[in-house]
Amino acid sequence: MYTLSQDTEQSRRERLRDRNVRGLVELLSRRGELRGVHPMADHVVDTFAWTV
């Protein structure tokens, strides 16, 4: 069972994750030459594209 502080921490982590993914997607949209530099970044962006 979660306590209030655990719920708050979980919510904070989810917002941070979403913000970071959004920033990565925006960056790779603007700067196509960065594709292929970091395979994990490409994977995250490709995975996000499938959900939209």
Score class of each variant (00 low, 15 high):
1 M>F: 12
1 M>H: 09
1 M>Y: 09
1 M>K: 06
1 M>T: 08
2 Y>E: 08
6 Q>V: 10
6 Q>D: 12
7 D>K: 05
8 T>Y: 14
8 T>W: 14
9 E>H: 10
9 E>N: 14
10 Q>K: 14
11 S>H: 09
12 R>I: 13
12 R>Q: 09
13 R>Y: 13
14 E>W: 12
17 R>C: 08
17 R>Y: 12
19 R>E: 07
19 R>A: 05
19 R>K: 06
20 N>A: 15
21 V>D: 04
21 V>P: 00
22 R>F: 14
22 R>T: 11
24 L>P: 13
24 L>S: 10
24 L>A: 10
24 L>N: 03
24 L>I: 13
26 E>G: 15
26 E>L: 11
28 L>Y: 01
28 L>E: 00
28 L>P: 00
29 S>E: 13
29 S>M: 12
30 R>W: 00
30 R>V: 13
31 R>W: 15
32 G>E: 14
33 E>K: 05
33 E>T: 06
33 E>M: 06
33 E>S: 08
34 L>K: 01
35 R>I: 05
35 R>D: 04
35 R>H: 05
35 R>P: 00
35 R>G: 00
36 G>R: 04
36 G>K: 00
37 V>W: 14
38 H>T: 01
39 P>M: 05
39 P>S: 02
39 P>H: 04
40 M>E: 02
40 M>T: 08
42 D>V: 03
43 H>L: 11
43 H>I: 06
44 V>T: 08
44 V>H: 00
47 T>N: 05
47 T>K: 01
47 T>W: 08
48 F>N: 02
48 F>V: 13
49 A>C: 07
51 T>W: 15
51 T>N: 08
51 T>R: 06
52 V>F: 11
52 V>A: 05
